[in-house]
Design a protein around this nucleic acid. Sequence first.
RNA 1: GCCGGAGUGGCGGAAUUGGUAGACGCAAGGGACUUAAAAUCCCUCGGGACUUAGUCCCGUAUCGGUUCGAGUCCGAUCUUCGGCACCA
Length: 891
Amino acid sequence: MLSAICYNSFTIFFMAEVIGLEERYDPQGIELKWQQYWSEKKMFRSGSDISKEKFYCLEMFPYPSGKIHMGHVRNYVIGDVISRYKRMRGYNVLHPMGWDAFGMPAENAAIKHGLHPAKWTYENIEFMKVQLNRIGLSYDWDREVTTCSPEYYKWNQWLFLRLLEKGLAYRKSSFVNWCTSCETVLANEQVIDGACWRCDTSVVQKELEQWFFRITAYAEELLQGCDELTGWPDRVVAMQKNWIGRSEGVEVDFAIDGTGDKIRIFTTRPDTLFGVTFICLAPNHQVAGRLVSDKSRLDSVKALYGDAEHKEGLFTGHYAVNPLNSERIPVYVANFVLMEYGTGAIMSVPAHDQRDFEFANKYNLPVKIVITPENPELRTPSSGLLTEAYEDEGILADSGPFSGMKSNEAKKEIARFVEKNGLGKLNINYKIRDWGISRQRYWGTPIPVIYCNRCGVVPVPDKDLPVILPEDVHFTGRGGSPLLESERFLKVDCPKCKGPARRETDTMDTFVDSSWYFIAYCFGKNKISLNSELPKPALNSQPSALGSKLPTPNSELNYWMPVDQYIGGIEHAVLHLLYSRFFMRAMRDFGILGASEPFRNLLTQGMVCKETLKCPEHGWLLPDEAANDKCMHCGQEVARGRTEKMSKSKKNVIDPDELINKFGADTIRLFSLFAAPPEKDLEWSDKGVEGAHRFLNRLWVLVSKNIDKGQETGDKELERSKMHSGSISLLRKTHQTIKKVTSDIEKEYHFNTAIAALMELANEISSFNPQDYEGWSVLRSATGTAILLLSPFSPHISEELWEMMGNKTSISEQKWPAWDEEMAKEEEIELVIQVNGKVRAKLMVPHGLSDDVIKETALEDPKIKSFCAEGSIRNVFVVRGRLVNIVLYSR
RNA sequence: GCCGGAGUGGCGGAAUUGGUAGACGCAAGGGACUUAAAAUCCCUCGGGACUUAGUCCCGUAUCGGUUCGAGUCCGAUCUUCGGCACCA
């Protein structure tokens, strides 16, 4: 031990002696210094000047689980680069951060460790905020939002009440997962293999009255709006459209023979109406209950509802009449028919629907072919037996007056016929369901309604908001919602009749919190005020002589919204984004703001992955549990698994804090931006991180060794025509790099190629040997530019180097450099000469030659001449500034 | 099954509107410096052939097509990753 200490201090002394201790790149010191500087000067506070062009850059806020992971780091670094870049481009940038702070893990922690969810959550936030700041993220912390604070969730409640007023929030009965042993509701993720996560009791479905938001009222608009989402990845838009699931079709009434009941079915294939051979009802369809006398058999079909493996049916003993051809067909109850979609009843055409085909086979029901393929080769074998349903389009057969029509024509004709004759109507169905927001949990926004025996469901008046979560509760994980045991919370006077009443004890889905947090940021901390944004009746049509100081309705909110760039994980491609789009529209209709779409551009970053290690005996291994491909515990060969998303269970995670301690935040930022473009998965590589660190180190040495020389040069204009070729070439490279880095950022946020270009410039700078004043001046300008261009990626080291170069103001306040197109132009180009499409020679020629001269030059090249001697020239193609292709007649 | 991506060196990844395939980095090999190592710096680095220091051939998942020219466009196939999945 002692000798080690001696050795270390000797080493440090020795190194300090040789290279000078002050010259070494010390990320820890620098990063802390600049983080303090930024924070003290409030450098990243959004400006209040709303005449300036704005840029709202938003990253998905984290759930405060306790620790930041690499996925967060990647997400936030991408957003930070964009924000810093846009600031340098002169935009008024809003770049906020907050906490998605309600949710189950806090309550689980309370159950397990007896910590109050609030304490657990706020401690996590405090810790994670320090972690975020260590990454050097340029947030405006003055606008921080924490969804579990009453100041925030008050507005959840306020919005709920507005939705309620408009009929967009309503109550209906719905099923939840219920553990009979714990007597509590379970979330889907708490149900493991159909059993309770805590006690392993099998979970049952229990019917409860719950609150819903009527997102279906906006289904069509949300779908139409998808076409405006040009700044979103195609696949996310596709997923949204898919989820909404619009389909056009007709509803047709089938009368039941002898009972007077009518069954309304929905179909998208009216062209197959003549092929209907039976009708199926969902097990919980009203008419099914009436038609089936054997309730136990009906219950057994109900029990298999939703079972994707088996088709189970039951003949009701009744027949329906096809209104088009008056055929009498049997009515079945079938487990695969969904009550929630369409009318809860279907017409079955086994010849042209695979599901009906399977059902018909099982229950020996007739199959009637009414569509034949246009291609005769595909026609049914003469036996008339199908092996599977024919679901494509074709020519109608056996369909009365419609026989011989093409199916897409027949669809329209038959639909028209149905409507004209009052047999049914055209209709559009959507897969999307209303959004159930009730959660039987404590750690969420209390739903602001009161139940009164006399007045029924009474909304909490606005003036009584927020309805605050009570503190006097215990967390056992048993016996339903903890809110039920707080007398003080539960008992309340009815706002209407002042009689005794009871509060709603359910809380809201946390997706409600995240559906409008981006709007909350626009107000600044604790200043959220959605109602002040409502248009006010004009007091006076003319502004008063004193100058009206009345707030313009919607001013600040409408300035910042919509978000210009949203960045987050693909896992939120459907729900969060769809709910947010719904909330925006609802709020627009309340008059709170003008826009409909919340996020103009969306970037879904790829996952952070890493190689996995697995021992045949000990399972997944941490990197330091293996040495030389052998397991440390048993010495067996370790299998290098494929690279997978970092996860604790696979032990391939990396702790951002450890990395920062070792390399500094700038290195981590640089590597995660360099290793892959943002939308693709990022494979973590320890060696790659070292490479990024080496690059920063090289830059550090480059600046520090030239400080003295560089400082002497001023900003005097140099005359290009008199410059050395070396200087010109470095100057040119500098301008080319500005252009390249700028366009890579602007175009697709391809930071990886931007950084590659910066590395090229750095390489050129280090091999440049300045001889005189001019050389030093060019060197200084190239170095300064490189640092400016680097600053969004690795801001701390850039600040420090910028300061070392003698600059007095922070690099974060500098303008993004501009390039000069003339300066960036190459004087000579490499001309590639092809013969018959194969590269045969390369020549250096001056820039800007005419096509004819280029052609001539190419043909005069001795090598090309010898190739051309083999045949006569048929054609010559000249691509300006690039290549010549000489095509010969083949012999 | 349906919808949407992706297949390029040993690896991560580059390649404007079709116009030099492999930028930049990692790994590997060689060299310089050092008593030595680390660090740093320099060189080589898709495969093959030959009459070996220059030249030729092959090469972007596979097969075919369009074109003077295809990683890029078109058609088919294979592999792979996401999402949805009895939505009538």
